[in-house]
Amino acid sequence: MSPDKMVRMANQIAVFFSTQPDVDAADRVAAHLADYWDPRMRAQLHAHVDAGGEGLDPLVIAADARLRADQTAD
């Protein structure tokens, strides 16, 4: 998937959860990515974050960190 497309898709998810009251938005974005994104898509996201995360909503970057933490915990 083109990086632009991935960034757009991830940011769309972040925008939704950032509008939700009383939730830990980064957690919810991470949970959404874990539930709906195939592992290779998440790997692409990790790689993009590692490369500087250009264009990503800060919430996505926070969620990416949670995703990695969860994966290590498993």
Binding site: M1, K5, D35, Y36, W37, D38, P39, R40, M41
Partner: peptide, 12 residues
């Protein structure tokens, strides 16, 4: 783990 959705399959 979840698999690929149709648009994701085409991207992959």
């Amino acid at each position: 783990e979840p698999g690929l959705r149709i648009p994701n399959m085409l991207d992959a």
